[in-house]
């Protein structure tokens, strides 16, 4: 499998790519928080939030529709909110009878459902844009600067580095299983569910032990280069005046949006 399968970074020369990763992370979190603070049905504020996303897309150099095209990943989860349509509050809009079940969509319920989806859709787009314009290691540094404990960020950095190595190992295991999953015409193949789960379990156990032993070797490699239990990192990012400017502009926009929602 090609390593790029897990990369979400899209290279371009853009103001957004050049922006300090701390500003990007901070504004993304603030934007998602701001969405959560919006009441149901404040359509103007939702619209403005969407404009902000379009604006950010525009300055990412990746195209205005970039995050929109990738924003449907959270859609399956919308199923969880469908029942909100039938909340017994406000005016009933219709009455559907399916067998023994009677469904009554209400205007309140529909507004609630739409608002939940909008909040989620806007927040997901902010996240998509963030990883598209920020190299993941830079993002990890940003969290370090924002006072997330270094142990946690380093563990995530290790996870990021080795997910490529270990998923390759999984693909090899799966391929080996595949190539031996033969069937003869007329014979039932594949064994029972129990047996198949056991095969997967053995693979998981094997992968676990290999990973466990690998962590020993990596630990040795770290010791060999002077590691003494303290992770050190270079704090190489410095905020420029431009970074501060964009940070304040972004925060002002979000405050304006919140005020608009409360008018």
């Amino acid at each position: 499998m090609h390593a790029d399968a897990f990369d979400r970074y899209y290279h371009a020369e853009s103001p957004l790519h050049r922006l300090d990763p701390r500003v990007k992370v901070f504004l993304t979190v603030a934007f998602i928080l701001s969405n959560a603070l919006l009441s149901d049905g404040v359509w103007a504020a939702f619209g403005l939030a969407w404009l902000l996303i379009l604006f950010a897309n525009r300055f990412s150099g990746l195209g205005v529709e970039f995050s929109f095209k990738r924003s449907f990943i959270a859609l399956p989860f919308a199923l969880a909110a469908v029942s909100a349509i039938f909340i017994p509050a406000g005016q009933p809009l219709a009455e559907w009878t399916i067998g023994p079940i009677q469904l009554v969509p209400t205007d309140f319920g529909l507004m609630r459902f739409a608002s939940i989806l909008l909040r989620s859709w806007l927040s997901v787009q902010a996240g998509i844009l963030l990883v598209a314009v920020t190299q993941f290691p830079d993002m990890i540094h940003a969290f370090e600067h924002l006072r997330v404990p270094a142990i946690l960020t380093t563990i995530i950095a290790f996870l990021y580095r080795y997910l490529f190595v270990l998923t390759d190992e999984v693909m090899r295991l799966l391929r080996a299983r595949e190539s031996r999953s033969a069937a003869l015409p007329g014979l039932k193949s594949g064994g029972s569910l129990f047996w198949r789960a056991r095969v997967a379990g053995n693979m998981a156990g094997q992968l676990f032990l290999r990973s466990y032993e690998r962590s020993d070797r990596i630990y040795n490699a770290m010791l060999a280069r002077g590691y003494q239990g303290q992770m050190r990192t270079l704090r190489s990012h410095t905020m420029t005046r431009r970074d501060w400017l964009i940070l304040s502009l972004g925060l002002f926009a979000l405050i304006f949006l919140q005020l608009l929602a409360r008018l």
Binding site: R161, Y162, N220, A221
Partner: peptide, 11 residues
């Protein structure tokens, strides 16, 4: 070390 994936542990 023999396996560079064990030696290169940073992103």
């Amino acid at each position: 070390f023999q396996n560079p994936d064990d030696q290169l542990f940073s992103p």
